[in-house]
Design a protein around this nucleic acid. Sequence first.
DNA 1: CTCGGTGCAAAGCTTTTGCATCCGC
DNA 2: GCGGATGCAAAAGCTTTGCACCGAG
Lengths: 153, 153
Amino acid sequence: MPLNTNLYEEVKKIFLAYLEKKELRKTPERFAILEEIYSRTDHFDVEELYISMKNKNYRVSRATVYNTLDILLDCNLIVKHQFGKNLAQYEKSYGFKQHDHLICTHCHKVTEFCDPRVQNIQNMIGDLLQFDIMHHSLIFYGECKKENCENKA
Amino acid sequence: MPLNTNLYEEVKKIFLAYLEKKELRKTPERFAILEEIYSRTDHFDVEELYISMKNKNYRVSRATVYNTLDILLDCNLIVKHQFGKNLAQYEKSYGFKQHDHLICTHCHKVTEFCDPRVQNIQNMIGDLLQFDIMHHSLIFYGECKKENCENKA
DNA sequence: CTCGGTGCAAAGCTTTTGCATCCGC
DNA sequence: GCGGATGCAAAAGCTTTGCACCGAG
């Protein structure tokens, strides 16, 4: 997927400001990883991101990828998911509508959906239990009833 | 926590019926693990369960624990959680009200809550996207505002 | 020039697998 | 007794760590 240059410029500014505020160095690797993430669609894991960059002959190490993902999580430019498996998945988040996930228990395909009531519940539970809730993860697990579902087992 | 004998007898019957239906063997290890789980409160991971049984001088292997947890998941006597970390957590589920989780991003304490609207959303999204949704996972992440919160870092 | 960041490889942890032995049926 | 289940240990898979070197400030 081609990189949306306008969006990336905006995201880059946010990242720059964050690095400055935290007195972290503006290394080329960090921006290369950010750019790679924002040129992707959907979800990815560390290995996929690492391989993508290697395929473009960009010299990075897994350690730097892990390190940079932590920083990007901290400044909310990406979100991290644990879709049941023991493998962290990530997703760019700036400029995209908040959404939740529905996972097919057969083919493991991930579908996104939005429901504003989730936010209402979040607000109410936060008030009720005296928590500043920052974010949430809602995942539905089920089987697709349509014929075009890629169910496999 | 002492085992609730009535509840355990009920759960045991369900497990027996399931093993019979699937033509799986009724080994003593499987029942010992089930009993250990239903004598526990709150969440646990594989290692905690394994150590508990070892401490009671019960001879089990980790492999059997993993195997049995998969079976218990399949017959819905336990549920599995991935609370953001790379470590599966489990919880007994029969005879307990369905609930979701709120995790403190400081001390990682897990609080449970119920909100019937989650079920409404689940039903509606299932209808809308043509999925038989079997179960869900909703986790809120935030910081406790009360003084008695065990926030640490 | 300094010291935070990177690359690489080794180590750490959870989970899975292979195989000989055991025991439910 | 047969074949599934167990125990043990090795292997696998994701993530973290240690250390020498590099390069941003």
